[in-house]
Amino acid sequence: MTADRESAPSAHIPVMLAEVMAELAPKPGERIVDATFGGGGYTRAILGAGAQVIGIDRDPDAVARGRAITEPGFTMVEGTFGAMDTHLAALGLETVDGVVLDVGVSSFQLDQAERGFSFRFDGPLDMRMGADGPTAADICNRADVSDLAHLLRTFGEERHAGRVARAIVAARPLASTAELAAVCERALKPGPGIHPATRTFQALRIAVNDELNELARGLAAAERILSNGGRLVVVAFHSLEDRIVKRFLAERAGAGGGSRHMPVVSGPAASFAPSAKRALSAGEAEAARNPRARSAKLRAATRTDAPALPLDLTALVPNVRLKGI
């Protein structure tokens, strides 16, 4: 996988905007859900195309940015995108014409030291996208060493997860990002490539925010609210996310059945028709301009008229349990 990379502070730049708009194809009068509002880059482009937008974000700062938009046709909702169907029902809506998801951490979150997402700044070891639930410090200071190692190995794909977990436990209590970064540096020794703390910070952030389960719930919610012909566009930034999107769309498209040895077993009708067999990547020019775009993968699909299928989280998301957290 490609681990999350931390780049220098910069203004928000929507990743793969041209490709997102081409796949989303918003039209005047349509309703589109920008389910991860963030800095509002996609929302502004969609509004510019004449469509209405419902923006969703659980980050209070992102919600405040959204509520500052006074353009007609825009509604800002505070909440998780995994519950987008519930949010729409509260607005009196059952279906929409498009959903766009840009998953993972935003440049705004990385650039705010007080949020605790980044090892580039010294701040509280928090990492919560919302305002509730356990923090990264809670996990570091309470999880036993085996659970912590499993978390780092699964969500960060840290090859030396056991070594880092033991170092974290030995250094307890940890309260700041600088303290955790220093622990990782002592455990792994800085060298060429990504910073020694990169995979640990990624794993903790995913666990704190339940990001992979939230992504799976969001995909299923999009399936329930998209009208026949509605478009789903997802931009992911590391292989754990992209793998979930790929598996979900393959299952919903009815892929993967049969071979010359085993007959195809008929199953439920396909609820999505993927627009391409492979994910799209950012072009060289964009990747050079915007480091965050380098690992981006875009997958898109069109909703059919088939009924939505039940969500099996265990088939899509790796299981990590943290006792006592």
Score class of each variant (00 low, 15 high):
Ala3Leu: 11
Glu19Leu: 04
Met21Thr: 03
Ala22Glu: 15
Arg31Lys: 12
Val33Tyr: 10
Ala35Arg: 09
Gly39His: 00
Gly40Asn: 04
Ile46Leu: 08
Ala49Trp: 08
Arg58Asp: 11
Pro60Cys: 06
Ala62Cys: 10
Arg65Met: 09
Gly73Arg: 05
Gly73Thr: 12
Phe74Ser: 02
Thr80Ser: 12
Asp85Phe: 02
Leu88Tyr: 11
Ala90Tyr: 00
Asp97Pro: 13
Val99Gly: 09
Asp102Asn: 05
Val103Phe: 02
Ser107Gly: 06
Phe108Ser: 06
Ala113Phe: 09
Glu114Phe: 12
Asp126Cys: 03
Pro134His: 03
Ser146Ile: 11
Leu148Tyr: 03
Ala149Gly: 09
Leu151Ile: 15
Leu151Cys: 10
Leu152Ile: 01
Thr154Glu: 09
Thr154Met: 07
Phe155Thr: 10
Gly162Cys: 07
Ile168Glu: 07
Arg172Gly: 06
Leu174Phe: 06
Thr177Tyr: 06
Glu179Ile: 02
Ala181Met: 11
Glu185Cys: 14
Glu185Leu: 08
Ala197Trp: 05
Arg199Thr: 10
Thr200Asn: 07
Gln202Glu: 12
Gln202Tyr: 08
Leu204Asp: 06
Ala207Met: 12
Asn209Trp: 04
Glu214Cys: 00
Gly218Ala: 10
Leu219Pro: 12
Ile225Thr: 07
Leu226Glu: 07
Ser227Phe: 04
Ser227Tyr: 13
Asn228Phe: 13
Leu232Asp: 04
Ala236Ser: 15
Ala236Met: 02
Leu240Thr: 07
Glu241Cys: 01
Arg243Trp: 13
Ala250Trp: 03
Gly254Ile: 00
Gly256Lys: 07
Gly257Met: 14
Gly258Tyr: 00
Arg260Trp: 15
Pro263Asn: 04
Val264Trp: 08
Val264Met: 04
Ser266Val: 15
Ser266Ile: 15
Gly267His: 04
Ala270Gly: 03
Ala273Thr: 14
Pro274Glu: 14
Lys277Pro: 14
Ser281Gly: 14
Ala296Thr: 15
Pro307Tyr: 08
Ala308Met: 06
Asp312Tyr: 03
Leu313Asp: 11
Leu313Pro: 11
Leu322Tyr: 09
